[in-house]
Write a protein that binds this DNA or RNA. Sequence first.
DNA 1: TAAATACCAAGTAAATTACTTGGAATTGAT
DNA 2: ATCAATTCCAAGTAATTTACTTGGTATTTA
Lengths: 149, 149
Amino acid sequence: MKLSTKGRYGMKAMLDLAIHSNEGIVSLKSIADRQGISENYLEQLFAALKKSGIVKSTRGAQGGYELGAKPKEISVGAILRALEGSLAPVDCVMENDASKCSRQENCVTRLIWEKIRDGINDVVDSITLDQLIEDYDKMSSKSDFIYYI
Amino acid sequence: MKLSTKGRYGMKAMLDLAIHSNEGIVSLKSIADRQGISENYLEQLFAALKKSGIVKSTRGAQGGYELGAKPKEISVGAILRALEGSLAPVDCVMENDASKCSRQENCVTRLIWEKIRDGINDVVDSITLDQLIEDYDKMSSKSDFIYYI
DNA sequence: TAAATACCAAGTAAATTACTTGGAATTGAT
DNA sequence: ATCAATTCCAAGTAATTTACTTGGTATTTA
């Protein structure tokens, strides 16, 4: 039940992008340098994020990425699902998928998986990027030290 | 963010054990046969369950397993944690662990992981085996078909 | 025209998962 | 006393997944 590096790095990168987006378009190289993530690997993550409309890109020199919507409209859930796929704990309760097993109506353990799925979705969909930016600003103003993302 | 077969099979097996425990001690072979899981693999799962006190064993012929506590006292969370380890989505927010990173105090993404962890724990710790047995009994009485676990 | 960037497809080493194999130890039934 | 049924235990292994890397092409600005 662990997130992969896709979710972890992607979340860090998205927060980094959000925090630096007042400076205009942000290159992957700058995110990679600040966050200590491989730039080539970030490319793959941002391809997925772009496909979901969470970021938009500008090609060419001085190009880079920016948020695809307002921070308030981008949830942690959307980011994680773009990167990790459905957050359902087992395939048989994936939201949209057809891989539902034949036992679906009469399965007791299925009830458990649905509750876990809903619990996770409720949490991640209730947190938006702007809340995290706020958290970051608070930490920045309080601490003398560097404020990690 | 998927459960492994340990969690999935183990949960099924535990429910099977709970439902059949009125018939006395239950052998792994019988669980394996009913649930279509490899008996040898179940052994590994039950070793972990036993270590956590969730089941207790009787060796020798006519031996097997029984619940280590009343169904009401065994939560889905305890079962899943025995089999999968901590349900925290990333290592840095594992409940008991020392692998906390140096940034712990000033990390914004950490706040996300903690909320997800707490959301999952709240759900799984609130479901107990006796509730699932009740669900199973309800399904059994309503449906003409077989009532899967 | 050159540098900086996004975009793309494939390859790969390491780790993890999902088991299997081959036993030894224990116990109840005959 | 023996045998069959069981738990218990340690290793081995094939397949899959993860976490990248490599080696480009396309696009845009300076």
